[in-house]
Design a protein around this nucleic acid. Structure first.
Length: 777
DNA sequence: ATTCTGAGCCAC
DNA sequence: AAACGTGGCTCAGAAT
């Protein structure tokens, strides 16, 4: 109390007094008083947790102060230093406990006799849980260090170390050779948690795994696509076994990092400890499988879909990822240099113009919106709300040259930073190819996501599904091969036509009219042919716009935003929507029905009830906001609450369409992969939502091109009425294609020396060309 | 020095 | 009054 009062005294007096007080405290303050003082400080919440743990550890006698420091006042810093030691001793205690309490049915397999017994037992099982321990997550470079199995009929859980350090064990070659008949036996089902990883690891060592029966990770996504967001305060991606086990099995789980430290290698873990950890993994996987199949059986449509589509799809993903991509590094280098040169020019010009308006000691950073917004606002005399290129800057580019330059700069730096410069760095050292990751349950609706592996630190992963048109030409077919791209023409609208049974849409598809062009003709009051395609065969501006408008409308866009997008006033947009949707009453009724359903049930179905999308927010009760009070801060929470409901209602229709379309794509991928497996040199190359890309020998035939077309339009049909459509094109570089007709019959291809030879030479010429401009789209 | 978050922007 | 669904990556700036 005295000290506080004195703080208001003159500075030098205050300082002296503080020092004196501190000295006094150091001499007299008890540890309890020190803790009261420290815990009352303004600590961050993780610090506070740690401090309390240290306090408890000290009173329990687990840890004590360093004698050398005992004469000094006990500080927060010292307490936090003690935490490190405490955590370490706790971890060691935990590990010792784990080993001491190893269940009697956990067995380490390190001798030929034990292994022989295990093989005999495995042959008697109809389904087992399997897991691999490895040196890392690069399935093309890392290696297996151990394998665990759970054998349910005899309740036995084993770990077979094959490459641990400093211990007696069987060799990897010996073990994998012995396991081969088991691993490749279709009749012995295998359950994994994240099967794609383990299958790829087995393949890396020459074992082609068969009999995949269940993947507890993908199944969990199907049972609850909201799992991640339901764990409050936890990061996204909580489909790890260690998170699921406590929630659904009531079993404590420790993550690898927690037990062994962040950069630990499993091969360094002593075998007694490795056994408890690894065997527990398969035991938990097995128990989670039983829990999941029990629940999924209650909805047979989902179970049937999971087993017939999602399970076989996992093999397809392993193959597709392993096939990988070839990049034209010379092209990337040259293109990258061009972009850099231009970016530097623009940067110099923009800085010269804006620097006088930049306040701050650091040089102006063009990539920093907080720096750029004020500087640019002053420079052009327009107060900018943000630096959004599309909404804010684009409308100003005609009036202010500096804005146009900035837009070009942003586009170029994004392109080179994210794609043209970045991708060449991601070559796999082992395969020399580029491998993306595809997550078949990466989205809540069922679409694939793509990117890096969750645990990957190598930086080799990349999103294969958002490559811009300018970056795609970097991706090339391997020598003597071509890429064949096949898309689902208007996939989502056909899906809507089927789900809603709207005759106007169905008729348009039956008569082969393009729905976007039809809408464009209506809106712009121009002939259908004129708005369908440009004379060079490219999409017209009008049709592209209608495509955006249609999709946006499907996603629940307001009339206000629609007007904005069309560049018209709101009443016009309202009328337009009325014209379009008013002429399709069945579609309108279907949209309304989706909203009603989700409000009643809290979820919606994808096609054939194969998948649910749970949207519980739709069941919230709307809060009343009195007329004219919208901006009243008192109603902020009510506004947020109601917009959650609005969002849920928009999601209902979208989830049905996106979910059903993703099922069509996945089923088609499985069929396509079956076809590729029969054709030497064929592979599935990529999947981008409504498009499949194949890698095929350049001498593939017209008949085979027709087979691809057939796979696309007949693998998954929207009922008996709505036809599917596809465009198939042949490419040397991704994004630079020609139709199959042109490829097989076009004048530049036909030759006196024979069709095949000429065609190969044609693609070789294209390969050499390297002139791909493809600026903008 | 590393990790997290938001803005922004790429894809369908 | 607000106002478009599903993703992933990069950068800047802040937090730890």
């Amino acid at each position: 109390m005295e000290i506080r009062l004195n703080l208001n005294a003159a500075p030098e007096t205050s300082d002296r007094l503080k020092k004196a007080a501190a000295k006094k405290t150091a001499a007299t303050e008890s540890l309890d008083d020190a803790w009261i003082r420290i815990l009352a400080m303004n600590n961050s919440s993780p610090d506070q947790t740690r401090l309390i743990e240290v306090k408890n550890g000290m009173s329990a006698g687990l840890i004590g102060r360093d004698p050398a420091a005992a004469s000094k006042r006990f500080s927060k810093a010292e307490a936090l230093r003690l935490y490190k030691g405490l955590a370490e001793s706790q971890r060691e205690g935990k590990l010792a406990d784990l080993v001491k309490n190893t269940p009697a049915n956990y067995h380490l397999i390190t001798t030929e006799r034990q292994f022989g017994e295990l093989l005999a037992e495995l042959k008697n099982e109809s389904i087992v849980a399997v897991d691999t321990e490895t040196t890392g997550v690069d399935v093309y470079t890392d290696v297996i260090v151990g394998i665990s199995f759970s054998l349910p009929t005899i309740d036995k859980h084993v770990y077979i170390p094959v490459a641990h350090e400093n211990c007696e064990q069987l060799s990897r070659e010996y073990v994998l050779e012995g396991l081969r008949p088991i691993l490749t036996d279709e009749g012995i089902g295998k359950v994994f948690h994240n099967a794609v990883f383990d299958i790829a690891m087995f393949r890396r060592h020459g074992s082609d795994l068969k009999g995949l029966a269940w993947d507890t990770q993908t199944a969990m996504h199907l049972l609850n696509e909201n799992e991640a967001e339901q764990r409050e305060g936890q990061p996204k991606g909580n489909y790890k076994l260690k998170y699921l086990a406590p929630k659904y099995l009531g079993v404590e789980g420790d993550t690898f990092d927690q037990l062994f430290g962040k950069n630990a290698q499993f091969k360094e873990v002593p075998l007694d400890l490795a056994l408890v950890y690894a065997a527990k993994d398969t035991e938990l996987t097995w128990r989670l499988y039983q829990f999941q199949i029990h629940h999924m059986r209650k909805t047979p449509t989902i179970l049937e879909y999971y087993q017939s589509v999602e399970i076989p799809l996992l093999y397809v993903i392993v193959d597709m990822e392993a096939n990988g991509y070839v990049l034209d590094l010379d092209f990337a280098k040259e293109y990258g240099e061009r972009l850099h040169k231009r970016a530097n020019e623009l940067q110099a010009e923009i800085i010269k113009e804006l620097a006088p308006f930049h306040e701050g000691s650091e040089p102006l950073n063009l990539n920093s919106p907080p720096q750029m917004r004020p500087a640019l606002s002053v420079a052009i005399g327009v107060e900018l709300a943000n630096m959004d290129a599309k909404k804010t800057l684009k409308p100003l580019e005609g009036k202010y040259e500096v804005v146009a330059k900035l837009l070009e700069y942003k586009k170029i730096t994004k392109l080179s930073g994210t794609y043209i410069d970045a991708l060449p760095q991601k070559q796999n050292p082992t395969t020399k190819r580029w491998h993306s990751r595809y997550n078949p349950m990466g989205t809540v609706t069922g679409r694939f996501s793509s990117g890096k592996d969750e645990d990957d630190t190598s930086g080799q992963g990349f999103n294969a599904q958002n490559q811009p048109g300018e970056a795609r030409p970097m991706f090339v077919a391997p020598p003597r091969k071509v890429l064949v791209g096949a898309d689902f023409k208007a996939q989502e609208i056909r899906c809507v036509a089927y789900l809603s049974q709207e005759p106007v849409l169905i008729d348009a598809f039956l008569e082969g009219r393009d729905p976007y062009a039809s809408m464009a003709a209506t809106f712009y009051k121009r002939p259908y042919e004129e708005v369908y395609k440009n004379s060079d065969g490219s999409d017209t501006k009008e049709r592209k716009q209608m495509k955006v408008v249609w999709l946006a409308t499907l996603y629940g866009m307001s009339d206000f935003s629609l007007a904005d997008m069309l560049g018209v006033k709101k009443p016009e947009a309202t009328q337009f929507k009325k014209d379009i949707f008013g002429s399709m009453p069945k579609l309108s009724a279907w949209l309304a029905e989706n909203e009603k359903f989700v409000q009643k049930h809290g979820y919606v179905w994808a096609d054939k009830q194969a998948r649910k999308r749970r949207i519980p927010d739709a069941q919230l009760k709307r809060k009343q906001i009195p007329y004219g009070k919208w901006n009243d801060p008192k109603y902020v929470e009510s506004r947020k609450h109601n917009s959650k409901i609005n969002r849920a209602l928009r999601q209902a229709t979208n989830a049905r369409v996106q979910g059903s379309s993703s099922i069509q794509t996945k089923v088609t991928m499985v069929k396509a992969a079956e076809y590729c497996a029969k054709k030497p040199g064929w592979a599935l190359w990529g999947s981008i939502h409504d498009e499949l890309v194949f890698e095929v020998p350049a001498d593939f035939t017209k008949e085979e091109a027709n087979d691809i077309r057939d796979i696309m339009v007949n693998s998954y049909r929207w009922g008996d009425v709505v036809p599917n459509g596809t465009d198939v094109e042949v490419m040397r570089r991704w994004g630079e294609g020609m139709s199959t007709e042109e490829f097989f019959d076009g004048p530049s291809v036909i030759s006196k020396t024979g069709e095949y030879e000429k065609r190969v030479r044609f693609v070789e010429a294209n390969w050499q060309r390297g002139t791909i401009g493809n600026e903008g789209n």
